[in-house]
Design a protein around this nucleic acid. Structure first.
Length: 512
RNA sequence: GACCCUAUCAUCUAGUGGUUAGGAUACAACCCUCUCAAGGUUGGUACACGGGUUCAAAUCCCGUUAGGGUCGCCA
């Protein structure tokens, strides 16, 4: 039983998908349950429609929760609401229990009191926090409490920590191994002024009630584990097993840092949608980060779905956080796209364009067969399949020259790449047009180009050109490239014969 | 400042006392070739540093350094 527990801030972090994928795999691979809980106890950060963002983000990547919250914010599953703000009474009931047992107490300290406390602690270079003699409200008598309550002073509920900072405890982490930590002695807030619980308290209550057996979360939580275990003990419950993974990092001025919502556009999962990264590519990239042996498995099982990969939990790397590597993602994405059929690519590109490039979507819809034929160039020929398409965003520019509304760049721009002036280039086009026949097979087609090369004083093959470059104006490569530039406006393109086969006669002759 | 985690090629990593330290990405060269991509072949001063333990250390221990994380009525 695992879970993913994002906050509904309207922002889905790519690390959230990473975390969800890990938890989902752990649960489902072992026949367990994976659920989604919405942690909206911070009302300030809550955004309308955010559950939709969460739910859509997960399902888009094929991650489905057995229990949880749907995109409209409705809970499904046996353990009541999976939205924390709707569980207020539950937390309050358990908080009351702790209060009655003397394991919690009301605190009337306001922000200024705490600021002052922190300043004093800083000045005396003491450990900061609400503990020991700084925990002023801990020793309030019942009468004092009643008086303050009566006077209408705002209050929160604090946990009366039984810990001793001098003592140490052993934490068994599923991913990091044994960790020796001091006990927690901070009297942390469990119920805030608005009556909602803090993360720590909600974690204990929910993960117990919802039956979580394995809590897999980012390692920013490691230092809270002693507290969390105290909370479970205080409530009389068994703590779940914890596994803390290192969060995704980003290289910034030579230093690694957390992939940040504020500074890094790629932290937002929407970034990958806008660019049109195939969902499978991101999943495969993340699986590769989770278990490096994924790529070996992928090589051996090129046709299997990534979700069939048997992830091993104990092989999750235990090092500092990995840098998010776009080069690797791109390489994986090329492979993923190369494994798709032209029809599948067409559908994916169209879906992307409908949302992010409406004019292109229209073009795609109006030219379905044509576009599919273009996408099919050098596709599905096994290992040698064309692998240059990374993301859907790039498709429009890639195939722009296949459409009549495209304007070819000025031929003079190619003077550094080709040993001919624009007039000579046009002449080659005219010569080729005179002999071109769409019914020619590739050999015949190429022979005709060779004949033109010879006529214009170019070598008909690269070997003879290399043997005596001074006897020619250039090689067959130059002639082919002239045709390429005339037709596609670029010196680099997919197979020119196939391009000409797909293009309409009118369009082709207008270019030559 | 205190506490915790981590340290193998540029990047992600394999590695659990005996390996020519392996793979993938990136980069470079060559082959193939009408260009590009792909494919094939090959390549590069990677175990942070210093001490131990041991016949033997990337692997175990200690220290140093560096990076990351936490110390909120945010999660």
């Amino acid at each position: 039983m695992t879970r993913v527990a994002p906050s509904p801030t309207g922002f889905m972090h790519v690390g959230g998908i990473y975390a969800a994928l890990m938890s989902e795999r752990v649960a489902h691979q072992s026949g367990g349950v994976f659920y989604l809980r919405v942690e909206d106890t911070d009302q300030k950060r809550k955004v309308d429609g955010a559950t939709k963002v969460i739910s859509n983000s997960l399902s888009r990547y094929g991650i489905f929760a057995d229990e949880g919250v749907d995109e409209d914010g409705n809970s499904y599953g046996p353990y009541g609401s999976y939205t924390q703000s709707e569980r207020k009474e539950i937390y309050q009931a358990y908080a009351k229990k702790l209060l009655e047992e003397g394991q919690a107490y009301p605190c009337f300290c306001v922000a200024e009191d705490l600021d002052l406390m922190r300043k004093i602690q800083e000045k005396q270079s003491m450990r900061p926090g609400y503990y020991g003699r700084f925990a002023k409200c801990r020793t309030l008598s019942d009468d004092e409490i009643l008086a303050k309550l009566k006077a209408g002073e705002p209050w929160v509920l604090r946990f009366k920590s039984p810990g001793n900072n001098e003592k140490r405890m052993l934490i068994k982490d599923l991913l990091k191994g044994d960790i020796n930590m001091p006990e927690n002695d901070l009297d942390i807030v469990i119920l805030k002024g608005d009556g909602l619980p803090t993360y720590h308290f909600a974690h204990a209550v929910d993960d117990h009630l919802m039956g979580t057996t394995h809590v897999i979360r980012g390692d920013e939580w490691v230092s809270s584990v002693p507290l969390h275990i105290q909370l479970f003990v205080a409530l009389g419950w068994k703590a779940p097993k914890y596994g803390h993974y290192a969060t995704l990092q980003k290289l910034d001025n030579g230093n690694k840092r957390k992939l940040s919502k504020r500074h890094d556009p790629e932290a937002n999962i929407v970034y990958f949608w806008e660019k049109g990264y195939p969902e499978k590519a991101l999943i495969e990239y993340l699986l590769n980060l989770i278990n490096a042996s994924f790529e070996d498995w992928r090589n051996k099982n090129p046709d299997k779905d990534a979700f069939e990969y048997p992830m091993s939990f104990n092989k999750i790397s235990n090092t500092a956080g990995a840098l998010f590597d776009f080069q690797k993602l791109h390489s994986i994405s090329k492979e993923v796209v190369a494994r798709m059929t032209a029809d599948e690519v067409y559908v994916a590109v169209l879906n992307w364009a409908k949302e992010y490039n409406a004019p292109f979507a229209e073009k795609l819809q109006n030219n379905k067969d044509y576009v599919t034929a273009i996408l099919n160039i050098e596709r599905n020929i096994g290992k040698k399949s064309r692998k240059d398409l990374i993301k859907w965003e790039d498709v429009e520019a890639d195939m722009s020259y296949f459409f009549a509304d495209w304007v070819r760049p000025d031929l003079g721009e190619f003077k550094d790449e080709l040993p001919l002036n624009p007039d000579e280039m046009r002449q080659i086009g005219v010569d080729f047009k005179a002999v071109y026949n769409k019914n020619d097979d590739k050999d015949t087609w190429f022979k005709k180009i060779q004949e033109i090369a010879e006529k214009h004083g170019f070598a008909t093959d690269t070997k003879s050109y290399k043997a005596s470059p001074e006897s020619y104006k250039g090689s067959i490569i130059d002639v082919a490239n002239v045709l390429r530039v005339l037709v596609t406006g670029r010196t680099k393109s997919p197979d020119l014969y196939q391009i000409m086969q797909i293009m309409s006669d009118e369009l082709l002759s207008s270019r030559l």
